[in-house]
Design a protein around this nucleic acid. Structure first.
Length: 121
DNA sequence: CATTTGACATCTT
DNA sequence: TAAGATGCCAAAT
């Protein structure tokens, strides 16, 4: 299996309405500190695969810039907003509210972590 | 084989 | 808060 396969597996586990950072994906995949490779992996991401690439943002909670152009960046934002992820006036996401927590399998889309916990009870 | 190039993160000013 | 330096490593050249 390719080196990137593990990254793709982690990305696929991110639920709708939540986001994960590149570093977070790397750590979950067992490659702490290899955040950059995650970005590289997504750049080489096969379009036919069912990978929610738009749910991966950088550590500052913003959509990363890419050499290809701004089109994909806009698409990424639109896709996230459609799932309920909010952007502030600076184009950033509040990771405190939308960051995916791998240890909490009961995270519902479009809810804050607190709401999710409350709803579970 | 040596260099360059990234969808990044973290530490230092 | 922001900007620069550094570490990371797979592919491309």
């Amino acid at each position: 299996m390719g080196t990137y396969a593990r990254f793709y597996d982690v990305v696929r586990r991110v639920p709708p309405g939540r986001v994960a950072t590149y570093g977070q994906v790397a750590s979950e995949a067992g490659s702490f500190g290899h955040a950059r490779q995650v970005g590289y992996a997504l750049a080489a991401c096969p379009d036919d695969a069912d990978i929610p690439w738009h749910r991966i943002v950088n550590a500052r909670g913003e959509v990363s810039r890419r050499s290809g152009g701004r089109a994909f960046e806009r698409i990424q934002r639109v896709l996230l907003e459609a799932e309920g992820v909010a952007f502030d006036d600076r184009g950033r996401i509040d990771l405190r509210r939308f960051r995916w927590d791998p240890d909490d399998p009961d995270q519902a889309p479009s809810r804050t972590r607190k709401d999710s916990r409350a709803a579970r009870k």
